[in-house]
Simulated assay, not measured.
Amino acid sequence: MLRSMYAGISGMKGFQTQLDTIGNNIANVNTYGYKKGRVTFQDMMSQTMTGAQGPTEGANGNTRGGLNPSQVGLGSQTGSIDTIHTQGNRQTTNRPLDLSLEGDGMFMLAEGGTDDINTEGKAFNLDNVNTSFTRAGNFYLDSEGAIVNNEGKYLVGEPYTINQNGPNTAQNNAGMITIPEDAQSFSIQPDGAVSYVDVNGTPKVAGQIRLANFANPSGLEKVGGNSYRYTTNAGEPIAELGDLSLAGEDGTGQMVAGALEMSNVDLAESFTEMITAQRGFQANTRIITTSDEILQELVNLKR
């Protein structure tokens, strides 16, 4: 069979993958904190017809120049599917538990069993709980006053011990941030500090939101629900509270309350890429059609 037919098939498979990625980007154009995907291609191994030769000197003293290799390509393949972690636009919501990050940091979420999370002490060991990371900052309060996401996962921070007779003090461990039920109001500062006004009108601190920052955020694995899972290629693992950063430190940027980060998908760019992928797919189908016509002519030689 003709090599061009198999090259066309490989091209069709690659453009199908690209169309799948573009379709997912467009579907998530209004998903908070979503980061778009991108497909890159690379050529397959080429079949060598003649190898390269260097200059040679003949028996009569004449020098012959070198020859380049002659190779026939065997098609294309998907090189990578990248996650582009560029900043998305900010949408103002004026909701105090909606948080937007202006920088490279990510919120850390934790979930686990009763043996892993101490709900009374508001603390847990990051080595034992299941952790994930997100840029979607739409958070809520559960029945205990802890800050959670829409799946009930706890927002990781540094909780403060509530002191009725004096200022609250930091616990110096990772845990959930809880706002008392009798709090009159609460707010979140740009550095991640969660403060509230108690029943006596005294301002106090409930905790400090911590952020994770990775050397290679594209190495994180998407697990759905606007969340990412840690992989060994993302950078240093998160093992304790000291590995996390405060907002504004270590390149994490500032935290903006009352706003959400939108998807970084550009519809104009996505539709342009979709048209290009469609035409590329169409061109590869034409290669198969032309190759089939050539094979038909070969079969007709017997007549």
Rank of each mutant, 00 (worst) to 15 (best):
E240Q: 12
V256K: 14
D20K: 01
K122M: 14
M12A: 07
E269F: 02
I294G: 04
G242I: 04
N118D: 15
L241D: 03
Y154C: 07
M255D: 04
F281S: 05
E151K: 15
G54R: 07
G66F: 06
R3M: 12
Y140S: 13
T86A: 09
Q171N: 13
H85M: 12
T202M: 13
A277T: 00
I188C: 07
V197W: 05
V129P: 03
N130I: 10
L2C: 10
N68H: 11
R286I: 07
G105M: 04
G88W: 02
I294T: 14
M255H: 03
T92G: 05
D82R: 05
G207N: 09
F186N: 06
G207D: 04
R38E: 05
S143K: 14
G121E: 11
T21F: 00
R90M: 15
D115V: 08
N165M: 13
V223K: 04
G66R: 06
A193G: 06
S187T: 05
N60W: 08
N213P: 01
E269M: 08
N300L: 10
A239T: 13
N226M: 10
E293S: 13
T92Y: 08
S46Q: 14
S291L: 11
G8Q: 10
G51M: 12
H85C: 00
D20Q: 02
T276N: 14
R95Y: 03
E57Q: 14
G8L: 10
R38W: 00
G253F: 05
V72T: 14
A183I: 04
N94C: 01
N150D: 15
V156Q: 03
S218K: 07
D116F: 12
G66K: 06
S245I: 04
I22M: 02
G152C: 09
E221L: 04
E221H: 01
G61M: 10
D115T: 13
A234V: 03
N163M: 12
A59V: 13
A259Q: 10
N28L: 01
V197N: 09
R303T: 14
A7L: 06
K13Y: 08
Q71D: 04
T232C: 02
H85D: 06
L241Y: 01
T17C: 00
R135S: 11
T83D: 00
G75K: 09
M49W: 10
G258C: 03
Q18F: 00
A239Q: 15
E261T: 05
M262F: 00
S70A: 15
D266S: 12
M262C: 02
Q296D: 14
M45W: 09
M1V: 08
N118R: 11
G23A: 05
N264V: 07
N233T: 12
G14I: 01
D266Q: 08
Q42C: 02
N149T: 07
Q171P: 03
I177M: 09
G253C: 05
K222H: 02
L67C: 03
R135A: 09
M255Q: 07
E273F: 01
A174H: 06
T31D: 00
S80M: 08
N163Q: 08
K153I: 01
